[in-house]
Structure formats: C-alpha cells, structure tokens
Amino acid sequence: MPETAAAAVASRRKFRREGEERRRQDLIEATLDCVAESGLQGATVRAIALRAGVTAGLIRHYFPGKEELLQAAYAATMAHMTEMAKAALAGIGQEPKLRLAAFVEASLVPPVVDLRAISIWASFIGRAASDATLGVAHRAGYLGFRDEVEALVAEVFQAAGRRAGDDDLRRHAIAINAIIDGLWIEGCLAEDMFATGELAAIGIASVEAMLGMKLRNEPAAEVA
C-alpha cells in the first residue's frame, strides 16, 4: 500500500477510535449526572440514554449492561479525584516533602472537595459492599490513591535518610488516606463552615505530626 494511502487508513482508524472513546466517555458522564441527581436507582438505561442523547441500543454497543456502565462510571470518578490531586505535583518540583504536602492540599480543596462529587461517591459506596462489580471499582480506586500516597511517603523518608520497611510505608499510607478521607467528607458536606484552606492546613499538620517532620518551611518571623 502506498505510504499516503497507509497514512490515510491510519488516520481514519485513529479518528474512529478517538470518536468511540469520546462517545464512551459521554455515556459515563451522562451516567454520573443521573447518579448525582437521582441516585443509582434513577440511573436507568433509559435516563442515561436520554441524558446522553442516544438510544438505549447504542449504550449496549459500548457496555454489556447497566452494571458494567455503573462500574466504569464509579472507576472514572475515583480515578478523576486521584488525577486532580496528582496534577498539583506538576509545578512543585522534586522536593519530596513539598510534593507530599501539595498532594494532601490538593485533595482537600476544590475541585476535589465538591458537593456533587460526594453525592456521587455516597451513592456508589452504599452498594459497593453488596455489588461485586462496584466492589471491584472501589477497591481499584482506593488502592490507586493509597499507592500514590505510599510512593510520596517513601520519597520523603528516603530524602530524609529515614529507613522504612514496606509495612511501615503501608501503615503510613493507610493513615494519611484516612486523614484525607475524613476531612474531605467534612469539606464536601459543609464547605461554608471552614475558612479557605483550613482543611488542607489541618490535613498537612496531621500528616506532619504523624511523620514527625515538617513538610513545609515555616514563614520567617517579621523583625519589629
């Protein structure tokens, strides 16, 4: 096949693949909209199709059934929150302590702290224990976030010359995840009760106390 023809075929395949990925993402976003507004019970195939502007048959082209679509939607929610926290590391540089502090902070401020996000999360988590497909998505999302925390803690310890075994790193990651989860729930449900950045400051201070080290330098005191 001539090079130009091969390139044209490759371009069409790429366009078709990207188009299908976009339509799949649109269905996931429509599902999340339905869950946010009406809970899992209201996220019917008909409601999702109406929201996405497609037929129910098209949904079945991308997902074997509603449960698989809900699983994909929950997985996307968990992954999105982790990716938003990781995005804060892009402009931080390579200092491990600052990177861990930035990750904790990003997890405890908007857009991660968001009433719609916790509404969706609560709908899914309520069924994750009894629904095997949602349970798989929850476990993967939880471990994905915890693994990010564990890697950041490992970098902090290594830079500080502190030895920590795998069990120690795992326990620290579990504890930090619990700190973030608790403050995240408070912030999502009652954001107006906290000053800007207050929950992030509490989270960072809690992590510092647990690790026994400052993650950020204190501002220099002003000389009178």
Rank of each mutant, 00 (worst) to 15 (best):
I120F: 09
V207Y: 06
L108T: 06
F103Q: 05
A56N: 07
T44N: 07
K14T: 13
L189M: 12
A164T: 12
L134N: 01
A88M: 11
A72Q: 05
P110M: 15
A106C: 12
G182R: 04
E198G: 12
E191D: 15
R22D: 12
F145N: 05
E150I: 09
C188N: 10
A79R: 15
F63H: 02
V149W: 02
C34Q: 03
L183S: 05
D26A: 05
L40T: 04
A200K: 05
G19T: 06
F63G: 06
A56T: 14
K14P: 10
A132E: 03
A195C: 13
A102H: 05
L189W: 13
Q25H: 09
F157D: 01
E67M: 12
L70K: 02
F15Q: 12
P111Q: 08
D114K: 09
A151S: 07
L32S: 04
H138D: 00
I174P: 01
V112W: 08
K66R: 13
I120L: 08
M1V: 15
R170M: 14
G187W: 02
G161S: 13
M193V: 10
E3T: 08
A49Y: 00
L183I: 07
F194R: 04
A200W: 01
A137L: 06
A8T: 01
E150G: 05
T82A: 02
R116G: 15
A132W: 08
L215N: 00
L58M: 10
D181G: 06
A154K: 13
R216G: 04
G197F: 13
T4W: 10
R22F: 03
A173V: 15
R216Q: 11
I180C: 02
I176T: 00
A221H: 02
G141M: 01
H80I: 00
G165Q: 10
E148N: 13
A5C: 07
H172G: 12
R16Y: 11
E155V: 00
G144E: 07
R24F: 04
M78A: 07
L89T: 10
E95Y: 07
A73G: 03
E68R: 07
V149L: 14
E18L: 15
E208H: 11
I204R: 02
L70V: 09
S130P: 10
A6E: 08
G19A: 06
P111S: 11
A151T: 10
A200R: 05
L40Q: 03
I202W: 15
V156D: 02
T82I: 14
L89G: 01
E105L: 11
L27S: 01
G39N: 11
T77F: 11
Y62L: 10
I176L: 09
A128E: 05
A190M: 12
A178L: 04
H172W: 08
G197R: 12
V104K: 02
W121G: 01
A151P: 03
W184P: 03
L70E: 01
A117L: 06
P219V: 03
L143C: 04
F103R: 00
V156P: 00
R60P: 08
S119E: 08
T55N: 13
R163Q: 13
L100N: 04
V149E: 05
R163Y: 15
